[in-house]
Amino acid sequence: MAEQTGKKFNWHIVVFLAPAVLVYTAVMIFPLFNTLRLALYTETENIRQFVGLDNFRTLFGDPRWSESFWNALANNFWFFFIHMLVQNPIGILLAAILSHPRLRFAGFYRTAIFIPTILSFVIVGFAWKLILSPIWGIAPSLLDAVGLKSLFAPWLGREEYALTTLALISVWQFVGIPMMLIYAALLSIPEEMLEAGEIDGITGASAFWKIKLPLILPSIGIISILTFVGNFNAFDLIYAAQGALAGPDFATDILGTYLYRTFFGFQLQLGDPHMGSTIATAMFAIILIGVCIYLFGIQTRLRRYQF
């Protein structure tokens, strides 16, 4: 280590690094790998036994496990799909409007639209549950006011709507994040570039599509991967709104809630740390694949512009 012009060992580097590296290694990296390791074991009569990939065979092959797993995985992809389809376009639209240089009250809109993002899932889940509740009747009476009362259904209670409804609630909560990141990216586009476009007759909406959008593509890439990672370890909203059983009839079960029920146990079901680790490993693999696709497939192809 002592390389700084052959001086004595630089203890201060160790002192500066040690606390962060120790806490990070002990509480994050070590448990992460330990969880991957635990997925290879099982417990019979209080003795931990190495079983190789048996747990994975059970998870993917045994119908008692695999049905729930594929259900949770499919639901998770749907959850992600809704976010990509609704959250990010709305976020980009709001950011594009907000970044207009002569817009009044931009600060107020920005602050207000970001408020749901700072609330906890518990608040968001319950608040929407109450608002959508047929007992309270806020949603039906609002729909009645615009003549659409017939559209009302107890969305959170119906198998076919519940997951989409929850995904839209999550979109409502998090739209502030893509909005802010895209807003920042749009602000960093130099004025000269837009002026050059103006001289060529590219203004208004076509300036957005032809000049700004290509320049903010890297930010859209980052938002997509953040959304992916966030959605594939989501748990709180579903738990707060629908409980650990992710009802109705597991229609809103995603990997996070499935992991929670499996490893922690719920009601009559006993917790199983080894199957829990197996699910966590599967989640780790999915997130890793997503991150790799982003890093090697998307990010390297997007040209980065340095201003």
């Binding site: 280590m1 390389e3 700084q4 630089n10 580097i13 690094l17 962060a20 590296v21 990070y24 509480v27 994050m28 990296i29 070590f30 448990p31 992460l32 330990n34 969880t35 635990l38 991967i225 990672v229 370890n233 748990f235 996070g256 992991l259 490893f263 740390p273 829990g276 680790s277 966590a280 989640m283 780790f284 997130i287 890793l288 991150v291």
Partner: peptide, 28 residues
């Protein structure tokens, strides 16, 4: 400071930006 393993250490510490700590919950 420049020291051997500097960028490796940076990379090691950056891993946790993308990997959620929840994955390790069982062992935690």
């Amino acid at each position: 400071y420049r020291f051997r393993g500097n960028s490796l250490m940076g990379l090691y510490l950056a891993l946790g930006i993308m990997i959620p700590i929840r994955i390790g919950t069982v062992a935690i």
